[in-house]
Simulated scan of single mutants.
Amino acid sequence: MSNHPAKSSIIGAYAIAIAEALEDRGLSAAEIFRSCGVTLPATTDPMLRIDNQTIAKLYSAAVDATGDPCFGLQAGEMMRPANLHAMGFALLASISIRDFAQRLSSLYRIVSRNAEIRTEERNNVFFLITSVAAGASVCHETHDAYTSLIFNLLRAISGNRFRSRKLELIRPAPPGLEHVFREYFQCDVEFNRPELVFAIDLEIVDKRLPGASEELAQSHDRTVMEYLQRIDSGDIVSRVRAIVSSELSSGTLNKDRVADRLHVSTRGLQLKLTARNTSFQEILDETRRTQALAFMSRSSVSVTEAAFSLGFSEVSNFTRAFKRWTGMSPSEYRRSLGLER
């Protein structure tokens, strides 16, 4: 265990889920952890991390002890919201599945830097897509636990009514056990795919969820962002994102302004962001999109207020951007959440 947030690591509380899954099978988690030279964490503090190699060692020992190649699925079930710190509770309070997906994409790095998460829409299907971050080496059981975690969170927020049209997994098919995954996820499952993909009917993505609470979600979001600033204090992308978030409404936000705040040249900033496979414009768009969805999920914020708070000079520009992000105008999005008639 380490308090250093290395790139190829995961929140230490993840190990607690592995231990609980072992105990649920009647096995001694303490003995198995000791055999791997790992101390079972006693806290869900997101600053406590565990490296991928140690996680893989724990899973290998757990699979040997249980004789179950699908053990990762059960470990994922044990990942309760509290294991994910404030992000878990923010996800449970999400307004819609789209809001959940955007929050997962924006905040998941508090749990792990192994994943890069995005969404796409094609032919009336919404895709929640996870790829493995460059340089990360992740065992099959970690893939299984992550997939199980997301699936069970989606079921929890939808009142156990969530169904995926199809699921694509990165891991290869376990010989003779393909049916276990199809029965568990209750849909067609494809293995050995380049990315992990939940394919979801677009018609359910923007429906207001039973436990939706924008105020609660945003409160937990702020807690997560505080921890992320500590974890990513030396991360140029996080530093740019923090400046963009604080100055969106100023009317003076641009690449030169951010470079000046960071005491680097504009070209130097551009090179640093390029090295991280992003750009100032991408960070600006991502930040605006995340905040726009939050604003449009609150009936107390008008479209005009949201537009100017996000730094748009014209409401029409905000409307066009919002439609590009969601496929709907702000008013249509609000109607889909039951906030307007």
Rank of each mutant, 00 (worst) to 15 (best):
T147K: 02
M1V: 11
E23G: 03
T290S: 15
E286P: 01
A101M: 02
T44G: 04
T326G: 07
P69Y: 07
H140K: 11
S329E: 13
A15N: 10
A292M: 01
A321V: 03
K255F: 04
T54Q: 13
F100Q: 04
V197T: 08
P210E: 03
R182D: 14
Y59Q: 09
A75N: 00
V244S: 01
P330F: 01
T130D: 06
Y59K: 09
H4T: 14
N277Y: 12
A306V: 02
H220Y: 15
S158N: 04
A306T: 00
L128I: 10
S233N: 10
N192A: 14
F312P: 01
A217I: 05
S60R: 14
L104P: 05
A242S: 13
T319P: 04
D68G: 03
A199E: 10
F71M: 02
A199K: 05
S213D: 14
D51Q: 08
M328A: 12
M225Y: 09
L153H: 04
G251F: 00
E23V: 05
R25H: 07
S331W: 09
I231M: 11
E168G: 11
M79T: 05
P330C: 07
T119P: 10
K57N: 14
I110W: 01
E23M: 04
E247L: 13
E77L: 10
E183V: 10
I32T: 04
R335M: 06
R80L: 14
R261S: 12
R193T: 11
S28L: 01
S316V: 13
I32H: 03
F100P: 06
A30F: 11
D188K: 09
Q74H: 08
A30P: 08
Y108N: 13
Q281Y: 13
Q229V: 09
E247G: 12
Y184T: 07
G72P: 04
S164H: 06
S313C: 09
E178T: 14
A56M: 07
K255W: 09
A17W: 01
L339T: 00
R298T: 13
K255Y: 12
V138T: 00
S302G: 06
K255P: 10
I117P: 05
A145C: 09
R334F: 02
Q270N: 11
F127N: 08
I55S: 00
G135E: 07
Q270E: 15
